[in-house]
Amino acid sequence: MNVRQLRAFVAVAQALSFAQACERLHLSQPALSLTIKSLEQDLGGALLARTTRSVSLTPEGETLLPLARRLLADWDNAEELLRQRFTLQRGNVAIAAMPSFAGNLLPDALRVFRDRHPQVNVTVHDVINEQVLEMVQHRRVELGVGFEPHAHSVLQFTPLLLDRFVAVVARGSALAERAEITWQQLLDEDFIALQRPSAVRLLLEQSILEQHGRLTVAFESHQLSTIGRMVASGLGVSAVPSICQGQMHELGACCVALKSPGIERQIGLLSLPEHKLSAAAQALKEVLIHYPWAVPGSIA
């Protein structure tokens, strides 16, 4: 039993006329008769009682008619739903992004996506970099944005921008007056860091270990916004990705170029190479790849 057979049966059953059903379905009468006959053969008995003057439903035909109508309605609804999703008239897509990106750069790109596809719902999970990798790998989201993973990662990485770390200091401090500062000058102050297992924290520790030894931390927090407020209040200094500069300025802190060593890392799009993206996820991926990324409040 297939959709074509059901449509033919319902058309005849509703009109009780092969001629009228042929007009509705744009079929010849022999073709319609053959379709009905094949349906009856598949099901094992007559569904229509036909004479030279009339057409009527058999008891089995009476049983099938409401079922066939519901099946066709469900089929049409499913067909329309998928058509709308493929044409992005509706749909859903989930993306995971580390907070520094989700809170500073992603909203502008999502505005572009929303303008193009206003009926597609987007869910953003702002989680630490390690959770971004995990959510993509376990297919809890289709796309992620984070730091470039290690060489043996199963994830596909598409670079979006190269981010350089900057120092975060209180606006009234002597360090805020400098054009750039060294790590040694920064580490002479109380240091405020993201808590482990933050990728930012681990990257900073690894990058300065050779020249400056282990990172000594006075304060820790899970949130960049808390770190910005702590620095602005004069509790210490920090270092964050440059994409957070706008956020740090809004929180009352000041960002200064940082050297010796300069620390930078690629930020990009993460996905599973063997996983076929939905139409909505593919459209979002195209926006993110081609968006002209620029770090807000960049230090010259």
Rank of each mutant, 00 (worst) to 15 (best):
F157Q: 07
E180H: 13
Q156R: 08
E60T: 13
R85T: 05
F86Y: 10
F101M: 06
R265N: 15
V120M: 07
N2S: 05
L27C: 01
T87N: 13
L72I: 10
E189D: 13
L224M: 08
N92M: 01
S225Y: 05
A109G: 07
S198T: 05
H117Q: 08
R116S: 13
R70A: 02
L155P: 07
S225M: 04
G213K: 00
R196H: 07
F191L: 12
R139Q: 10
C255P: 08
G91F: 13
A73S: 13
Y291L: 05
L16N: 01
V12E: 11
L155F: 07
Q206H: 06
L202I: 07
L81N: 04
N129W: 08
P261M: 04
R178S: 15
I227A: 02
P292D: 11
A253Y: 01
Q29T: 06
V124E: 07
R50F: 00
G213F: 08
N2I: 04
A19D: 12
I267H: 08
L64Y: 02
Q247E: 11
W75S: 02
P30R: 12
M248W: 01
V295E: 10
L88Y: 07
A46D: 14
D163I: 07
Q5C: 05
A179M: 11
T63S: 12
A19G: 09
E264N: 09
V55D: 07
E142G: 04
L6D: 00
P296H: 14
G144T: 06
I267Y: 09
N104A: 11
D115A: 06
V10F: 07
F86K: 14
V200C: 12
R214Q: 02
K285S: 12
Q89G: 14
G268S: 11
R201T: 03
G228Y: 02
L162P: 03
L270P: 11
Q245M: 09
R116W: 08
R229T: 10
D188H: 12
R171Q: 14
V127A: 01
A176M: 11
